[in-house]
Design a protein around this nucleic acid. Structure first.
Lengths: 331, 331
DNA sequence: CTGAAAGCGCTTACAG
DNA sequence: CTGAAAGCGCTTACAG
């Protein structure tokens, strides 16, 4: 190991030009004499040259790295988000750094401080940071928020409405009159959005809807809701996310309640594994990979933006994926 | 955004010392006058100073970043590996870059070239690179391999034997006489290791064992094995990984074969979701998070190593996790 | 179009 | 212990 890498000086010597010419040939193609440029490229190839990104970053101040902060790397909701983000970043010559905050706002703030000097901008998956902390970060480097809206900060949020409208219509067509929503984190923008939309559409469809929980947005949180769900008398329930839906489905079945005959369950997200259950979980699909990719695009857009315009995105839409956990309400 | 960050020159001015003194105070604590050091630290704190990692990397050649290359970021096998690696990296002041090669050796080679100049070393999760390509990378920067052994290159591999021995003993105690192994990637070190160990232990236990497949190491690969499994007449099967185990379990159930009464299934890895199936999958657990963490430790060790010693690790062990997909062989 | 020079923010021998 | 200087590998005005 430790073969020393070639520099622009090595290339300059080999090609018989000045190092600054090499720099120009490599970084601003078309701006210099074509023959010279070709010579430089040939020499670069011969020496297997790759620019030292650190040396490049110093004068420009641009690192070509972006950070994606997630609260829990092992939460399957993030897998596709990370993949989408990584892909778009790579396509644009950026390197993605994914950092985990382990569900603690203190760790998250520290991690952010550690990573911020290294990157050109940061994308927050779910975050426990306060609006103030987000504004502070946004003052240093461009920020894009996923599933959260903060005044003056770019965001990418999905449009939950189509999926919820479809889910309500689906349940209504199956004869459900009284349904529930198993809530997740109360401080979360997306939890509130889903609940508000569900109320709106359920009422419009002539159904009643009650809030259950809120519980932890995990398999355990779903499992812990069994008694409350049963007590509520609902014939169908939509859960804040699939993790809760899966936990509820398994716990309810273990308690001898038949899914979907006695209780229909609809999850949210369509995470990996949500079709492993018996029955497989009906769910409202989130375009997770697109969201990750578009978060990167939004960040790149702020890099370009002359004015301080911040993109807001909800091109992403949601839709119902009917599997086995929903059926006709008992007469 | 774009508040310009403080530099050591700002600190030097504020503290009334030379910039080089600031540098020393910050990077080699204890090497200078305690009072001076305190003054510098106070000034640094006041200015909210954070060292520019790029400026630091230029003279030292050390980036304090390490890369983890995985073939598929959405493969749940990697979740805990990534988490373990991220954690140990952060503890040691390193930033982890995770890169995805999208299951293509060409993409992987390109990604590697792109990332290599930015990092101090690289960890390969599964890799499609040839031994030669790995040696080439290892010549430029230290390399650690997970689940693969290449002469002269550091590695972290789990000891598959305890888990397999336990699984065989478990199946033997349930009266199984004739079992199968559903194979994954034939070029994979770990696939071969698991198969060889299974043969050894099955034979010692007086069982016969046959190889089925190989198939893709995915849910689909498991599903596609139904006919071959059924034709083989085995009463129990161990799959290369959980993904295949889950696919097989679901497909076999759909085909009307009862699991575990008519076919016992044992997976490998204990991935997220392997307990979502009905019945939940019995599996051989891999210490994935430890493996990720130890891969980082091995890499850091090579940074220290004066001689070119490369660590080989199989401290990690495996063990059987009995859930619901195994039971007594039919009489 | 291209050369010579200065500078990005650090670190680290070299003096004193 | 600390200052002054050179250098890491680039980029980019400034000349010509």
């Amino acid at each position: 190991m430790n073969e020393k890498a070639a520099t622009i000086y090595d290339i300059a010597k080999l090609a018989g030009v000045n190092p600054s010419t090499v720099s120009r040939a490599l970084s601003t193609p078309g701006r210099i004499n074509a023959a010279t440029e070709a010579k430089v490229h040939a020499a670069a190839k011969e020496l297997n040259y790759r620019a030292n990104p650190f040396a490049r970053a110093l004068p420009t101040g641009k690192t070509r790295m972006i950070a994606l902060m997630v609260s829990d790397i092992t939460n399957p909701v993030f897998f596709k988000v990370v993949r989408g983000a990584e892909k778009v970043a790579a396509e644009n010559g950026y390197t993605l750094v994914v950092a985990e905050s382990i569900e603690s706002s203190k760790v998250e703030a520290e991690t952010l401080q550690r990573i911020l000097p290294s990157v050109d901008g940061v994308i927050f998956g779910t975050t426990r940071l306060s609006d103030d902390e987000i504004h502070q970060a946004n003052r240093e480097k461009p920020v894009v928020l996923i599933n959260r809206i903060v005044e003056g900060v770019a965001d990418v949020v999905p449009d939950n409405e189509p999926g919820i409208a479809q889910a309500v219509a689906h349940l209504a067509s199956l004869g459900h009159k009284h349904i529930g929503f198993l809530g997740g984190p109360t401080a979360s923008w997306i939890n509130a959005d889903r609940w508000n939309l569900l109320m709106k559409h359920a009422v419009e469809a002539g159904m009643t809807v009650v809030s259950i929980g809120p519980n932890l947005p995990t398999v355990e949180g779903g499992r812990d809701a069994v008694d409350e769900v049963r007590a509520s008398g609902v014939s169908a329930i939509i859960t804040y996310n699939d993790l809760m839906g899966i936990g509820l489905l398994r716990a309810v079945s273990a308690a001898g309640i038949k899914v979907p005959e006695e209780l229909s369950i609809v999850g949210f997200d369509n995470i990996f594994g949500s079709d492993f259950t018996s029955p497989p979980l009906t769910t409202i699909e989130m375009p997770l990979e697109r969201i990750g990719g578009n978060a990167v695009r939004a960040l790149l857009a702020t890099f370009e933006a002359q004015d301080g315009t911040v993109p807001h995105g909800s091109e992403e839409t949601t839709s119902l994926l009917v599997r086995g956990s929903t059926t006709k309400a008992k007469a």
